[in-house]
Design a protein around this nucleic acid. Structure first.
Length: 652
DNA sequence: TTAGGGTTAG
């Protein structure tokens, strides 16, 4: 074998710097350094195995590096996704040699990946200077991709239009550009033009992008026609295309089609499983989502963050703490527990499953936190009634330089209203003003609610009057504020002001606030009138909460039959608070007959609620039915139920 | 030596 072939073979297997140094010396000694092919391979190795500076030095020693050699260096860096290094070598590599089409193509790849538009434009200019871009479709697709990835679809389209006979790849690059730039309508229009006007047959790569565009549009019909096209074309749908279709069905809530496709897929990867789990978790097939996750693990498919997150969401939806803990264990085993997305999903799951301290432990273990993870922690604590802890988290969050947004402010004001501490409300009020949140109507409404619940109605009114753009949320919170303070008259007056002085249209929450105000102040007639206004004048269907207040109002005047009649007319399921209101009224008016109906319904809805048993037993006692009362008290003991006792706090 | 894509997401 000639020495050239031997050296080439050695270069092919060289993986160590020691051998590389020997080969380098050998090529110098044998004069093989002038061999273009060998020089290219060797240069690739310099940049692969040695520090960049050393590699550059050795490269500089090559007497006449060919364009081919320089291109190989660029290509090698692009393959390893070291794009910045590739671009930093562009000038040194091509200081003597003129770049060719290959050079431009590799460079454009790096520009696309880095989204370096100016560099990309310079390469475009260079291509034009060297002439015949139009004869080279490789360069065309590179340029379209570069402009697309930099978000410049107008320029991408201009490049495309320079080609009189674009091939499938050029068309696909343009379709993909539109899809990736969230212009799915344009993507589908270009695709349709390609198929209909230019009779170009798409391949699976084109179809993946087209399905993604349909998914963005939530256009199930168009997506299904692509699926039909795949069938008609007669080829087996490749995995990425099947996954794209699964994703379409998942996002459009088509669990049936997703399940059918998933069942017939011969090859499935973690993405297919993730799509299917996510589809079930988000479309009321919670148990199936959990079963799929277990099946995936049983089959030895390694979970990724997405499959874990979807499975955790399923646990969250059905409050399955045990399963959530098991999935946490799987995340730990796969080294994904501290992935920021997985950790946050764990926090959400633990918070929703009423285990806030486990959520807090996960948060404390996270090596880095972002605004979303802070938000999950804060909201979870508020949701779990940990108002003091929420306040502490809010302070820690600010100390960690995480800027709260309006939603966080609404949550923290909610916690503050629970604490009912006026000084805290004043501090948050200042923060709201300094942070520019006051223009947000939800924040404004929360602040009104907060002041009202802290017992400071005057401040609530001041905030209300200072808001220039009052929407229905703001008005409703002020009605409720008056209601909390027993000022139903003011609440009603303000309602009339809203109707006459503004264009704001009341909603169901508005009426809930007014009805609550009437109930609180004992304004029975007015309350019933508002219930009828809501239904007849504003055509708003009352919900269970509205019915509960109406029943309470009728109950106050002893009109228990009317209340019962109203309940029987309810179009939706009768909630616990409706029966609760009726039971309370029955006790006052000593109507054991209706009271028993109410209590039995209540206990059916919530058999572990000790308070309902006690109410009913008191009612029996009031009516002298001591045996019945004793029986109920007995069942409280038997079930080991305890009434949650009220607590008072005095803050000095 | 060249080109178009990949689904999932707190």
């Amino acid at each position: 074998m000639r020495s050239r072939e031997i050296v080439l073979k050695l270069v092919g297997v060289c993986r160590t710097t020691k051998l590389l140094t020997q080969l380098h010396s050998l090529t110098i000694r044998t004069g093989l350094r002038y061999d273009t092919h060998l020089a290219a391979k060797l240069t690739e190795l310099y940049f692969e195995l040695l520090p960049v500076q050393t590699a550059r030095k050795l490269f500089d020693e090559i007497p006449h590096p060919s364009v081919f050699t320089c291109n190989r260096v660029l290509q090698s860096f692009c393959r390893k996704k070291r794009y910045e290094q590739a671009l930093s070598l562009f000038s040194p590599l091509f200081s003597f040699e003129k770049p060719d089409h290959f050079t431009l193509l590799f460079t454009l790849k790096a520009c696309s990946a880095l989204k370096w538009l100016n560099f990309g434009k310079a390469i475009h200019g260079l291509g034009k200077k060297h002439g015949n871009i139009h004869s080279n479709m490789f360069l065309g697709s590179g340029l379209i991709e570069m402009y697309s990835k930099c978000g410049n679809m107008d320029d991408a389209l201009s490049i495309f239009e320079e080609y009189s006979n674009p091939d499938l790849v050029l068309w696909t690059t343009l379709v993909t550009g539109y899809e990736k730039n969230f212009k799915p309508d344009e993507a589908l229009a270009v695709f349709t033009g390609m198929v209909m006007a230019h009779c170009i047959i798409p391949d699976p790569i084109t179809l993946v992008t087209v399905v993604s565009a349909c998914t963005q549009l939530l256009n199930l019909k168009a997506g299904k026609s692509v699926h039909a096209l795949v069938f008609r074309m007669g080829y087996e749908s490749p995995l990425p295309l099947s996954n794209a279709l699964l994703n379409l069905y998942a996002k459009t809530g088509s669990t049936f089609y997703a399940g059918n496709l998933f069942r017939v897929m011969e090859e499935k990867d973690v993405i297919s499983w993730s799509c299917m789990i996510s589809c079930c978790a988000h479309n009321d097939a919670i148990d199936r989502a959990i079963r799929l996750f277990d099946e995936m693990i049983d089959k030895g498919v390694e979970p990724n963050s997405v499959s874990l997150i979807s499975a955790l969401q399923a646990c969250e939806a059905c409050c399955n703490l045990d399963k959530g803990r098991q999935i946490h264990e799987v995340a730990l085993q796969n080294g994904l527990e501290l992935d920021i997305l997985v950790s946050t999903a764990l926090i959400d799951m633990y918070m929703s499953c009423c285990s806030p301290w486990e959520a807090i432990t996960v948060f404390d273990r996270m090596p880095s936190k972002d605004p979303v993870s802070w938000f999950a922690l804060l909201c979870g604590c508020v949701q779990n009634g940990m108002a003091n802890k929420s306040m502490q988290i809010f302070c820690d969050m600010i100390a960690s330089d995480i800027q709260p947004d309006a939603t966080v402010m609404v949550k923290i004001l909610g916690a503050c209203s629970e604490l009912g501490v006026l000084q805290l409300t004043s501090c948050l009020h200042n923060y709201v003003i300094r942070g520019g949140f006051i223009s947000n109507s939800f924040v404004g409404a929360s602040l009104i609610d907060c002041y009202a619940k802290c017992g400071c109605l005057e401040e609530a009114i001041k905030v209300f009057e200072s808001l220039t753009d009052k929407d229905v949320v703001v008005w409703s919170s002020m009605f409720a504020g008056y209601g909390i303070h027993g000022q139903a008259r003011e609440s009603i007056k303000l309602f009339h002001r809203m109707v006459t002085d503004s264009t704001v249209w009341p909603n169901k929450v508005t009426f809930l606030s007014i009805l609550a105000a009437c109930s609180h102040a004992g304004f029975v007639e007015e309350g019933i009138e508002f219930f009828n206004i809501m239904l007849n004048e504003y055509q708003l269907m009352p919900e269970s909460k509205h019915y509960a207040i109406a029943v309470d109002l009728l109950g106050r005047t002893g009109e228990l039959d009317k209340a019962m009649c109203l309940i029987n007319q309810m179009p939706s399921q009768v909630g616990a608070h409706v029966w609760g209101a009726l039971l309370g009224a029955c006790r006052i008016h000593q109507n054991a007959e209706i009271g028993e109906v109410a209590a039995r319904n209540l206990l059916q809805l919530d058999p572990d609620h000790a308070g309902y048993y006690i109410l009913l037993s008191n009612m029996y006692a009031d009516g002298g039915k001591w045996d019945d009362a004793a029986e109920l008290r007995g069942s409280i003991k038997e079930r080991e139920l305890k009434k949650i006792t009220g607590q008072s706090v005095v803050r000095l």
